[in-house]
Design a protein around this nucleic acid. Structure first.
Length: 371
DNA sequence: AATGCGGGGTT
DNA sequence: AACCCAGCATT
C-alpha cells in the first residue's frame, strides 16, 4: 500500500468532519449505487433525495425495474428531468439480468448500455471497491483550480490527473471527498476558499494574492484569471505540442534543432506535434522513440500553456518523463542530443514558446536569469 | 469536438 | 437572464 500523502490526509480529515449523510453512501449494492449515480447526472443532491427513496420502494432491485412498463417508469421519474435516463437505467438493469451478473470493473461496466466513463468508475469504486478515480464536474473543477490545469484540456488528461491524485488505500472515501469538496466548498460560482482544507496548496486561491485569506469569496472571474493561461478564442487554429522533460543522474536531456529548420541550432526539449486524434501521452512516447530511440517508463504532467503566433496558437504540454534506459541515450554529435546540468541547460537559448517552462525550471532550481 | 436532452435552484 | 448541476449518446 502506498503511504497516504499529507494533502490526501488533509482532505480526508475535512471529509470525515463535514460529509453529508447521503443514503447512497450507506450501501454497496450495485443497483442502489447505480440508481443514485444516474439520478445525480446533471441533477443536484437536494433534488434527487426524495426521488431516490421513492424509487427504491417502487423498484427495490434490478429485476423489479427491468420489468417496469413505460407508463410506470415515466410516472416514477416525472419531475427529475432527462426522462431518457429512466429508460437507460432500465436498459442497464435488463442487460445485467441478461448477462447473469454485474461486471465489477470499469471497463466491463462501461460496456453496459447507459453507463459512461463517470458512472462506470463510480459503480466500480463505490459498489465493488475498485481503487479507481471518478471524474465528474466537481472533481475536474477541484483539480483544475488546485493544480492550475486547463479545464478545456481533454477528458483523458483530467482523468489521468484524477488517478494521480487518488488515495488508493481509501478510494471510496477519497472519491466522495473530492466530490463533496466541489459541491460544498470549491463551488463553481463563489468558492469558500476560507473553509477549504487545501487553500494553502491551491493555485487558484493563491494567485489572486490575499483574496483567499480574507472571508471574501473568490469571484468566478478571478478564479478564471488565476489559471494564468487564457484559452484561445473560438476559431483560432491551435497546434498541440508535447515536450519531454527527461531528468536522469542530475542532468536534463536536450537536443539541437536541425540547422535547416526554423530556429535552427537552438536547443529544445524532445517532443513534437500531437497528431489528429492522438493522445498526448501517445504522442510523447512516439516522439521520444523517434528522436531518442528510447522507451517511456512513466510520464507525469508538469505544465501546459499556450504560445501565440499571429496566425495560430501553439498549446504546449510538458511532461516529466522517465525512460526505461536513460543511460543508453548517449550524446551524439551527429544528432545533437546532449545531457545538461540544470544551470548549463538554463544558460542555453530556447525557443520563445518555452518561456513559461524555463521560468518554472529557474524557480525550481533557484537559478537566476543571465544578467 | 459539439449538441441535444429537463427541470429546478442560485446569482 | 444567465449559469449551474455526481453525464450520456449521437453527430
Amino acid at each position: 500500500m502506498p503511504p497516504v500523502q499529507p494533502e490526501q490526509r488533509e482532505l480526508l480529515a475535512w471529509y470525515a468532519a463535514n460529509r453529508r449523510d447521503l443514503p447512497w453512501r450507506a450501501t454497496r449494492d450495485p443497483y442502489r449505487v447505480l440508481v443514485s449515480e444516474v439520478m445525480l447526472q446533471q441533477t443536484q443532491v437536494a433534488r434527487v433525495l426524495p426521488f431516490y427513496q421513492r424509487w427504491l420502494e417502487l423498484f427495490p432491485d434490478e429485476r423489479a425495474l427491468a420489468a417496469a412498463s413505460d407508463a410506470v417508469l415515466h410516472r416514477a421519474w416525472k419531475g427529475l428531468g432527462y426522462p431518457s435516463r429512466a429508460e437507460r437505467l432500465r436498459a442497464t438493469c435488463a442487460a445485467v439480468l441478461a448477462r447473469g451478473a454485474w461486471p465489477n470493473d470499469p471497463a466491463g461496466l462501461e460496456e453496459l448500455p447507459g453507463i459512461g466513463p463517470y458512472t462506470a468508475r463510480a459503480v466500480a469504486a463505490f459498489a465493488f471497491g475498485h481503487p479507481v478515480a471518478v471524474l465528474d464536474t466537481n472533481v475536474a473543477r477541484v483539480l483544475c483550480r488546485r493544480d492550475g490545469l486547463d479545464p478545456a484540456q481533454g477528458r483523458a488528461a483530467l482523468q489521468q490527473a484524477a488517478e494521480d491524485a487518488l488515495c488508493r488505500p481509501q478510494a471510496v472515501a477519497w472519491n466522495n471527498a473530492m466530490m463533496e469538496l466541489g459541491a460544498l466548498v470549491c463551488t463553481a460560482r463563489a468558492p469558500a476558499c476560507a473553509a477549504c482544507p487545501w487553500a494553502g496548496r491551491c493555485r487558484a486561491a493563491r494567485d489572486p494574492g490575499r483574496l483567499a485569506a480574507t472571508a471574501a469569496p473568490l469571484k468566478a472571474a478571478t478564479v478564471k484569471q488565476a489559471y494564468g493561461d487564457p484559452a484561445p478564442p473560438r476559431g483560432t487554429p491551435v497546434v498541440k505540442v508535447v515536450l519531454a522533460l527527461i531528468h536522469h543522474d542530475g542532468r536534463y536531456l536536450a537536443q539541437r534543432r536541425p540547422a535547416d529548420k526554423h530556429a535552427g541550432g537552438v536547443w529544445e526539449l524532445p517532443g513534437g506535434k500531437v497528431e489528429a486524434g492522438e493522445d498526448e501521452r501517445r504522442a510523447l512516447a512516439r516522439e521520444v522513440a523517434e528522436e531518442l530511440g528510447a522507451e517511456v517508463l512513466a510520464a507525469r504532467h508538469l505544465l501546459t500553456w499556450h504560445h501565440r503566433y499571429p496566425d495560430r496558437w501553439v498549446r504546449l504540454a510538458c511532461y516529466r518523463v522517465r525512460l526505461f534506459a536513460p543511460e543508453a541515450v548517449r550524446p551524439l554529435a551527429s544528432d545533437g542530443v546532449q545531457w545538461f546540468a540544470p544551470a548549463d541547460l538554463l544558460a542555453q537559448v530556447f525557443p520563445a514558446g518555452t518561456a513559461p517552462l524555463v521560468a518554472r525550471m529557474r524557480k525550481y532550481h533557484r537559478i537566476a536569469p543571465r544578467g
